[in-house]
Structures are given as C-alpha cells and as structure tokens.
Amino acid sequence: MDSAVQQLISDFLSFAFMQRALMAAVLIGILCSVIGVFVVVKGFSFIGAGIAHASFAGVTLGFLLGVNPMLLALLFSLLMVFFVGWATHRGELKLDISVGIFFAFTMALAILFIGLMKQYQAGVYGYLFGDILSVTRADLRLIAGISVFVLAVVGLLYKELQFITFDQEMAEASGLPVTFLYYMLLVLIAMTVVVSLKAVGVILVFALIVTPAAAAYQLVHRLTPMILVSAAIGTGGSLVGLILSYIWDVPSGATIVSLLTLVFFVCLWWSPKRRRCRCDE
C-alpha cells in the first residue's frame, strides 16, 4: 500500500502534465464551486447548462475555421448570455424558454459545424468530454487568469450579488444598478464555463458548478459559509477524483463529477435542514 502511494506521489512529482492537471483541478474546483453558489441560489442552473452547450458551438466553429476554440467558445457563451438576458429582462420571454431555444439552436450549430469538417477532429471530443491531463501551460495560465478575475469580481461585488440573487426587485427598488449586476453575473458564469471546458468538458462542466454548491446548501444557512463549504467540496472532489481516475485509469471528468454527486447525496442525507423538516412534520 505504502509503495503504491509512493508511486502515486512520485508520478505526480515527476510528470509535468500531472502537476498541471493537479493545479487545474484546484483552480477549476474553487472557481466553479464559488460561482456555482450564485447559480444555485438564483435558480440559474438551466441557463448555465445552456451556456455550456452554446460554448460547444464555438469550440466546433473554432476547429472548423482553425481559430482558437476557447476564443469562439467565449464569444458564443457571451452571445447566449446577452440574448437570454435581453429577452428575459425585457419580459419578452420567460428565462427557461429563451434558454431552451438557444440551447437547442447552438447544439444544432455544433452538429452542423462537425458535419462540415473535412476530416475527423479528435480535439472536438476532448472538449465534449474533457481531458484534464491534456491541460497545457498556456491553458493553465488562462485558467489561472480567468479564475483570479472572476473571484476578484465576486469579492468586490459580493454584497450586490447577494442582494440580486436574493431579491432582484428589491435590489432595484433600493437603487442598485441591477441590470449591470445581472449581466455581470451571467458573464462571470460564461467565463467560468468556458475556462473549465478543456478540463471537464461541455457535458460535465455544469455538474462541477452546481453539485458542490447544492451539497453545501444542504449543510449551512448563510451565504458566506455556503461559499466556503462549496469551495472545499469542489476542490476536494476535483483533487480526489483526479487521483482516483489516475489510479483506476478511467476518465477524470466523469470520476470527479461522480464523486461530487456521491458527496451531494451524503450531504442531502445528513442535512440538518432535512432533519428539521422531519421534526417539523
């Protein structure tokens, strides 16, 4: 057993790709689980899933045109954010309808772009399912830069984001710039999704955002502790999931998300909120 652990530590210290994967897991674990708290309390889960799929259309177009896929993924995500924000804010469409339309449309675009490719592009499927072990130094710098930016904005606008996710109408009535804050939150979600694509993939990225926050929600009654617990679960789950996937030689993104889902169910079972509900009954 000791030798197995030593071998594992030795691998992680010896191979640069393993070190980059570990650092990416920590950064993405923190980033997704912090922004995920605002997604969960605001009820934005579906919009986040929509952003992830919109970004995939950008990735496929990037491969088709030979342009940086991350750049176009960000562009498509922002387009989705502004379309959904505009339609919802004007009261033209309900949020789930506008997301549903764009969700399906961008997936259709992605399939069209794949169909137009002259040759098989394995990289596209890397973005679909994620491969944290293939994170390059440039990817890591991008992940670190975006993480610092998103977390700094969350820190600076913490009380305003808290107010608009709790009661947007009251925040507006009190004089806060709600439209700016609403779009800012959507942009932060979009940036988080895009920067996590390569590591965990389009399909799993949103689990990494929602699941740690949903697990933390079961355990605490205030927003700040929820963020801290969510970050701990997200980071721990990402690290342990990565190590387990290496040991068992299985896909890392799927292992991380499965582990986080297991943690969520443990938190749900152990939740003081559920115990209180049972007592109330």
């Binding site: 808290q162 009251m170 925040a171 009190s174 009654h221 205030r222 927003l223």
Partner: peptide
C-alpha cells in the same frame, strides 16, 4: 435563501454603502 435575519436586514443598507 441561505440568509439570517441580520443578513437580510443589512441588505437594506447596501445601496447607501455603494458599489
């Protein structure tokens, strides 16, 4: 929403405090 009475009441001051 994960908030206590204090958390909710202090939100009333946020616009006065400023961005």
């Amino acid at each position: 929403y994960p908030a206590t009475v204090f958390d909710m009441v202090i939100m009333g001051r946020y616009a006065r405090i400023g961005l």
